[in-house]
Design a protein around this nucleic acid. Structure first.
Length: 1125
RNA sequence: AGUCUCGUAGCUCAGCCGGUUAGAGCGCUACACUGAUAAUGUAGAGGUCGGCGGUUCGAGCCCGCCCGAGACUACCA
């Protein structure tokens, strides 16, 4: 090669290989510790939280996308001068970890405490959970995600857990922590609750035949009932597929917007006259059309009925009714029971549109009843503890009279003990006999079964600890309005609705591997204590030892106030240790820990505080808002009710603040066909292979620019390839072009800059575009719109910089000696490339690094450089408009050439451009030179209307006319299109014109029309969007000769290249051949010589050994020889 | 079932506050260019903007219903 590395100020890189660049940059970063040095220690804080992934699963391609998104904003803010600390974290607790361990060890939950101790089990979990950390760390590194992996927060550490306890204690102090019950799927035979995960296993839902009953609830007379129905007794119809829950009924739920009917009919069993209420839409399910209005008593199948009146659900709310099966009364607020209440879940799909509500055995029931203040049917057992009417074995309790002791589901009996009638059937009979049933029949429906016992599941109230989030619902909603959501719809929609329908947060999990609830209670529940720190726990244990409940203090060695890792490492707050620690009440009574664990979502929501061990350490980080709230977070949209919520809830509950000011919820990564990726389908993309093959830069760029991050991404390697080839390839070529000539000319980027005003139009144009681009990128990023920010960069590089600026300026770089024009070209191109490197660095950190350091041989890193700022004075909209015109005109001329088959090397005499107004003439004049060079023409001729070569035509401007014309629009548009030249001229000179329309006169102004030209007769014409031009096709002999000379240059350049000459080598040149060819070359000898770096053209025999080429110029044979001088 | 997102050319996506004839890239076809060259240019084919209805002088965009894909939540008398 012509240049040794010594003379390469700007390294020449050859062909693009992104994975290789990645490797080199990674080792540079590592050697120079670039990440650590990139943190702007003195800058203002930009707070970012890393959502903790669970390290017991393998990373997928979607993690690359999510992390690229997070990395982008962290790097962007860093370049803008902010101090962006980002700390990795690991979510280490939870069911997936437990299930993984159980699968591995081949055990089930039942084995815990039997074949394996809790201690061994938890030890296995602790080990399993960090298994893949190396792979995760590797992914993080390879993809260029900058996050501190050396000091990650880990949720199972004692410090982390201590903060979680502290937070919970704060919530307790505010009176927002309570023990209650929740309705959960429960298997009486297995004696355990079932998670929704277990219930969703295949085969759990089965079609079964059950007794269904439509019961009649007698409305109690009141002012409301009299006003609605009059004095006669009325019954409300409600349907159930679980009659055994009817004794536990405490409410009837109606849909507020549903229309209900009062129907006059008879009881089908007792044949007595009866007024009943049910949803109007469901009348046909109970009554036949032909029976409507029939007189007299029911006979056979005929059940006479008539619709009396209809009501909205809301009108019925508040009605009271007599308890249907009065075995027992709620022990609490019985006066509030047996009312009609509203519920959003009520439908008219089946039943009666009125839902029998038993809060002890239905989740919806419990929710609406609690909201309406209706008590559940709980009775006190012999210990005075409130219990439902069914015990944990699935049997009715003693208060249930004739039904006491019976299993509520016949399946729970051993085969041989099965009674003749199920409880459901007995209740059905009883209702019929007492006239309290309208219909009792078998009904087939889908019902969940326990996967272990095969028996039906009961929905049963289970003890749980709750956070009373409903108490702060309004505040959480108000705080939510302060958060910038991307997309906004997730904040108002999914998240907003979630807050709107907020339930209390059920914290309890009956598991082993997690943070234990720090709640100790006396057996009777009369006293309880929440532990808020290890120090407190140690003190309480001391008291307990003193009171004789503990032999010794297990935390004896713990030193309060010593925050060393060693001190904390000796403490394990997990089960089973804490379970064995007994505390002492104020009266000296033993207190045991509540056995449940804390929902792991609380762990992750506690992360802002727990990662800094607040408030025990780093108190100022939170209190002085240095590390709280976050300026920005981002995770998958599936975290809306997960991490996004728990962060929000804890921040709201404990700190009355938002946890994050802006949040992006990104969508899923699907395969190229839009299918979810899964190992089973084999369509999952291996992120490591993808990075190795295409490079992380291309991958990241593709994933963030192909679709908005909150839309699902259909991942296709073809797209990654395209990004690599089109964007990175073009950019790389552009740099390659720059470095090639900059090295030849010894361009020094540090030379005094040529003032913008002294640079040629095209330089000012590309810089104007560049600064417009910076403004656009910055605005979009500040609005958390990454796709809008980065697509324009790619467009700029490909369309403006490479395909227009460099193409038109090529000659400036390789022609002649260094002078102001050449220097201006280098400075302009250098500024563009440098700016692009810094703009793209957040998304493509590797390539940007190489490009930046290639452009600035002594620079440390693009990631310690400043993000470009737009200089408004460099932006010239007029110039941009003019250049757009130049591009359009060039494209039109090329299109004519194409159509007329005139090659570009053949010069043409003139191009005619119609001018419609003065400003247009100036525009064309300003860009004339560029267009002429680009399309190889001699003159641009501006022609106006007076020349008579074209005719103006007007077209309606709908946008300005629409509001004025309204219904007349069509008529006005037609009239404008029909305007004669004189009328148009008058409009242009006077600024207004009156149209005489059938519907009356209508005055239009200049801005109401767009003026265009019709085709120009007798010329080769092209037009695009209002711009029209004509090309003079006549070719003079001179032009033809010049065309041949250009062909000759082309051939000689080819011969130079073929002969292996360097672009700067000067040559001796010989030519011969047909007379036409020789004449053309001779006529343009100076031109030819300057183009091919020769001194003269010799039309004599060439010496032996010269490089030779035989060719033809437009059919004229020709021969060339050349030799390096 | 509810909530949210998405549906525009064969594929991936733009499309502003509603404004005339809906755009780009990829792919395909043809031609050109050839000292940025595994690039580039020009042209062509390719669209009932998921469907139906409505509002409007005018709807890809606004409203209603429906269909399809996906996510989350809930599991229901």
């Amino acid at each position: 090669m012509y240049c040794g590395p010594m003379s390469q100020t700007y390294p020449e890189r050859g062909s693009l290989h992104l994975p290789q660049i990645q490797k080199e940059v990674l080792s540079y970063w590592e050697a120079q510790d670039v990440f650590a040095k990139s943190i702007r220690q003195d800058g203002p804080e930009f707070v970012f939280y890393e959502g903790p992934p669970s390290a017991n699963g393998l990373p997928g391609i979607h993690h690359v996308m999510a992390r690229a998104l997070k990395d982008l904003f962290c790097r962007y803010k860093t370049q803008q001068g902010f101090k962006v600390d980002r700390r990795a974290g690991w979510d280490t607790h939870g069911l997936p970890v437990e299930l993984g361990v159980e699968k591995e060890l081949g055990i089930t939950k039942e084995d815990i405490g039997k074949s394996i101790t809790v201690e061994e089990y938890n030890a296995a979990c602790r080990e399993a959970v960090m298994r893949y950390t190396d792979i995760w760390n590797n992914l993080t590194k390879q993809m260029g995600y900058w996050v501190d992996m050396d000091q990650p927060y880990v949720t199972y550490t004692s410090k982390y857990m201590e903060t979680v306890w502290w937070l919970l204690a704060q919530i307790h102090q505010k009176g927002l922590l309570y023990k209650g019950y929740t309705i959960q799927p429960y298997s009486p035979k297995a004696g355990t609750g079932l998670s929704s995960h277990e219930l969703n296993q295949p085969g759990c839902y089965r079609d079964v035949m059950d007794v269904s009953a439509t019961a009649l609830f007698a409305v109690q007379a009141s002012a409301q009932s009299e006003a609605l129905f009059g004095p006669a007794p009325v019954h409300i119809m409600a349907w159930t597929t679980t009659p055994w829950t009817l004794p536990s009924n405490t409410a009837l739920t109606v849909g507020p917007k549903i229309s209900y009917a009062l129907v006059d009919t008879f009881n089908p069993y007792t044949k007595e006259k009866q007024l009943v209420i049910l949803a109007e839409a469901l009348i046909s399910k109970y009554f036949r059309e032909e029976d409507a209005g029939v007189d007299g008593p029911p006979e056979g199948k005929v059940l006479p009925w008539s619709l009396q009146k209809t009501f909205l659900g809301t009108e019925l709310v508040g009605l009271r009714y007599a308890q249907l099966l009065p075995y027992a009364q709620p022990f609490e607020h019985p006066d509030q029971a047996f009312r009609v209440i509203p519920g959003d879940f009520v439908t008219t799909e089946d039943g009666t549109g009125i839902v029998h509500t038993a809060p002890t055995f239905g989740a919806d029931d419990a929710r609406v009843a609690a909201a309406a203040g209706v008590p559940p049917l709980l009775v006190l057992d012999e210990h005075g503890t409130p219990v439902p009417l069914v015990d944990l074995q699935g049997r009715f309790v003693s208060q249930m009279g004739d039904l006491a002791g019976q299993y509520v589901k016949i399946e729970y009996y051993p085969e041989e003990e099965r009674p003749e009638l199920s409880v459901d059937e007995q209740i059905g009979i009883q209702l019929k006999q007492q006239g309290k049933a309208f219909k009792v029949q078998k009904y087939s429906h889908s019902y969940p079964h326990c996967w272990r016992t095969d028996k039906p599941v009961l929905y049963y109230p289970m003890d749980s600890w709750f956070i009373r989030t409903t108490a702060v619902k309004e505040r959480l909603q108000a705080l939510n309005h302060e958060i910038q959501w991307k997309p906004a719809s997730t904040g108002t929609g999914r998240f907003g609705n979630w807050l709107e329908n907020l339930n209390d947060w059920n914290l309890s999990r009956s598991r082993y591997w997690g943070i234990p609830l720090p709640i100790w209670r006396t057996e009777d529940g009369s006293e309880e204590i929440i532990i808020d720190s290890i120090e407190t726990l140690k003190k309480e244990l001391d008291r307990s030892v003193a009171d004789g409940h503990m032999a010794s203090n297990p935390l004896a060695h713990f030193v309060p106030g010593d925050f060393s890792e060693a001190n904390y490492a000796q403490v394990d707050l997990h089960r089973p240790h804490v379970d064995a620690w007994v505390l002492s009440s104020s009266k000296g009574v033993a207190m045991h820990r509540e056995l449940d664990l804390i929902d792991v979502w609380f762990d992750s929501g506690a992360m802002p505080y727990a990662q800094v061990h607040y408030p025990f350490e780093n108190k100022e980080a939170i209190d002085q808002n240095k590390a709280f709230p976050a300026d920005f977070i981002a995770e998958g949209v599936d975290q809306t009710r997960g991490w996004f919520f728990t962060l929000h809830a804890i921040a709201g509950l404990v700190f009355d603040n938002v946890a994050y000011k802006a949040v992006i919820s990104n969508g899923l990564v699907l395969d190229k066909n839009g299918q979810k990726m899964s190992k089973r389908l084999g369509n999952a993309v291996d992120p490591f292979k993808a990075m190795e093959e295409y490079g992380s830069d291309a991958l990241r760029w593709y994933m963030l620019t192909n679709a908005q991050p909150w839309d699902n991404l259909k991942f296709d390697f073809a797209g990654v390839q395209e990004v690599q080839r089109k964007f990175f390839g073009t950019l790389h070529n552009t740099y390659g072009f720059f470095s090639l000539y900059a090295n030849v000319d010894g361009f020094d980027a540090k030379e005094v800059r040529i003032p913008l005003s002294e640079r040629p139009e095209i330089d000012r144009w590309i810089l104007s575009k560049l600064h417009s681009l910076i403004a656009e990128v910055t605005t979009s990023l500040d609005d958390f719109e990454p796709t809008r920010a980065f697509r324009p960069i790619s467009d700029f590089v490909q369309d403006e910089l490479s395909n227009w600026y460099v193409r038109l300026c090529r000659r400036r770089f390789w022609k002649g000696e260094m002078g102001d024009d050449k220097l201006a070209a280098y400075q302009t191109l250098h500024e563009c490339l440098d700016t692009i490197a810094r703009l793209m660095a957040p998304v493509a950190p590797f390539y940007a690094e190489q490009l930046y350091r290639d452009l600035h041989p002594s620079a440390f890193s693009v990631h310690t450089s400043d993000f470009p700022t737009s200089n408004p004075s460099a932006i010239d909209p007029d110039l941009e408009r003019r250049m757009a015109l130049a591009q359009r005109l060039s494209s039109l001329v090329l299109s004519v050439r194409k159509k007329e088959k005139i090659r570009v090397r053949q010069p043409i005499a003139r191009v005619l451009v119609p001018i419609l107004h003065g400003a247009q003439a100036e525009d064309v004049r300003a860009i004339e030179g560029l267009v002429l060079a680009e399309v190889n023409a001699k003159h641009i001729e501006l022609v106006d209307e007076a020349s008579g070569v074209f005719v103006k035509r007007a077209k309606a401007n709908f946008k300005s006319l629409g509001p004025k014309a309204g219904p007349q629009m069509k008529e006005v548009a037609a009239a404008i299109a029909a305007l004669q030249p004189e009328a148009l001229g008058s409009l242009e000179s006077q600024g207004a014109w009156t149209l005489s329309l059938a519907s009356g006169d209508f005055i239009i102004t200049l801005e109401d029309v767009e003026v265009q030209t019709d085709d120009i007769p007798g010329m080769a014409v092209a037009s695009e969007r209002g711009t029209t031009l004509a090309v003079d096709l006549s070719l003079s002999p001179e032009l033809i000769q010049e065309g041949l000379a250009r062909e000759a240059v082309n051939r000689i350049q080819g011969l130079r290249k073929e002969s292996g000459l360097d672009i700067t080598d000067r040559i001796q040149l010989w030519a011969g051949g047909s007379s036409e060819a020789v004449a053309a070359i001779a006529a343009h000898e100076a031109y030819v010589c300057s183009e091919v770096l020769a001194d003269t053209v010799n039309f004599s025999p060439a010496p032996a050994g010269a490089h030779r080429m035989e060719s033809d110029l437009e059919g004229h044979p020709v021969e060339f020889w050349l030799q390096k001088t």
